[in-house]
Design a binder for these strands. Structure first.
Lengths: 158, 158
DNA sequence: AAAATTATGTCAGCTTTGTTGACATAATTT
DNA sequence: AAATTATGTCAACAAAGCTGACATAATTTT
């Protein structure tokens, strides 16, 4: 509907004004994400995994039965980048594959019991950080933050 | 351990529930940041730079006269990781160094005219994305989002 | 049935960006 | 004079991204 881009400088950060760049939120996003992603690092390191493994494990856990193609699309990385970390997660027994019942070329991905436990352990400190930040941000914060973040993401890939 | 949660498709992750991890905002943060950081990639690629160069250029531009030690502390990377990209930025004429007037061991960093222009060009698409997202998030969004992001970051390194 | 396409896997090699440890130099502080 | 500090640099390595090519099995199209 509404919400045009450049034409209307009515908002605080007017895109046409020379010095209107929103450096504050740009930086806050950098620091927030830097510290948010560092939460699970301690747990990951114990298993010899990195953040790439975390992302794969997370999405497979959240969407059981997703295929390799789905995962590539979600993560926006290449097949080879994925193959490396996925193989390690499978070999370590955190993820297992099942040939698709309809299309047997597909490899449907599922977290194992251990995979589910690890995914949850990794999500917990992040969730705790979020809960605290929401609580400190005033009433209605959760809904506004949700809308903000959803809007920050490209609409094309929903 | 009652393992499985969220058979509920409504996904209204309640922050108070003990067993409930806030997967919704965890994922929104991932997608938001993924797309937010991809905005400047086109410009960076033309110059043969990556996101590491962007971060260095950004912070030097924002805090003129900051030292190498300041930058290491802000970015939380090692001296060698910084040295590589910083050297390239200096050699390309986007950043220049001046020996500290008080302590002449220090190298105070400044963006050149070209550096300022590039920093701004990189910030613009990001700022535009933020402005749109704020506008779509309802009244008071900017303040709440600011508080939320500030709270997400570790308090120790202000 | 044959051919084309698709989903996945894999090989070889490269790039960026991070890491550690050691050591050098100049400037400052003790 | 000695110790410490700020920076630079070397060598080596690791994680995680990339490209392009090719193989295999399964499915779809002709």
């Amino acid at each position: 509907m509404a919400g045009q881009v450049n034409q209307n400088p009515a908002t605080k950060a007017a895109p046409e004004s020379p010095d209107s760049v929103d450096y504050e939120i740009i930086e806050l996003l950098f620091f927030a994400y830097r510290d948010f992603t560092s939460d699970p690092d301690v747990i990951l390191e114990k298993r010899g995994f990195g953040r790439a493994h975390h992302r794969v494990l997370h999405f497979v856990d959240r969407e059981p039965g997703m295929t390799v193609a789905d995962l590539l699309d979600t993560l926006k990385i290449t097949k080879q980048s994925l193959a490396r970390v996925l193989k390690q997660l499978i070999d370590s027994g955190y993820i297992h594959q099942i040939a698709g019942p309809e299309d047997r070329r597909q490899r449907k991905l599922y977290t194992t019991k251990e995979g589910k436990a690890l995914a949850k352990a990794l999500a917990e400190p992040q969730s705790r950080r979020i809960a605290e930040a929401i609580a400190e941000s005033g009433p209605g914060a959760r809904e506004i933050v949700t809308r903000f973040l959803a809007s920050m993401k490209n609409k094309s890939d929903d």
